[in-house]
Amino acid sequence: MINERFECEILRASRTRLLQLMETSNYETLFKIPEGFNNNIIWQIGHCITSQQRHMYMRSGLPMYISKEFMESFKIGSSPGSWKITPDVNEVKHLLIDTVNHLESDLESKLFVNYEPFELPIGFQVKNHAQALQAANYHEAEHSGKIFTYLKLLLKE
Rank of each mutant, 00 (worst) to 15 (best):
G46H: 08
F37S: 12
P121R: 13
I97N: 13
L96Q: 15
T86D: 09
A136G: 04
S60P: 04
A132G: 03
L103M: 13
S105P: 00
T50W: 09
K68V: 06
S79H: 07
E35T: 10
S67R: 04
I97Y: 12
Y115P: 01
I76T: 14
N90F: 07
E104Q: 13
S67P: 00
F112Y: 14
V100T: 15
N114M: 11
N101C: 06
L120I: 05
I85G: 00
H102N: 15
L120F: 15
Q131V: 02
C48P: 09
I41V: 12
N101V: 14
S73V: 06
W83P: 01
G46T: 08
I66H: 01
H129A: 11
T149V: 04
L96C: 07
T86G: 00
V92R: 14
K127L: 08
I122A: 08
L133K: 10
H55S: 08
T149P: 00
A130V: 11
P117M: 03
F37A: 10
H129Y: 15
E104L: 08
K110Q: 14
V100L: 08
M58N: 03
H139A: 02
K93L: 09
G61P: 06
E108Y: 08
M58V: 09
F112N: 07
F74P: 03
S105K: 14
A132N: 01
Y115K: 02
E104G: 04
W43V: 11
H129N: 12
H102G: 03
E91P: 00
R59Q: 11
L95M: 13
L103C: 14
L111Q: 13
Q131R: 05
I147W: 07
A130C: 10
V92W: 11
A132E: 03
T149L: 14
N40W: 02
R59V: 00
T99E: 09
A135R: 08
D106Y: 00
P63H: 10
G46R: 05
N114F: 15
Q53C: 06
H143W: 09
P63F: 04
N40H: 06
V89E: 12
F148I: 05
N101W: 07
N137E: 03
P87I: 08
I122W: 15
L111H: 03
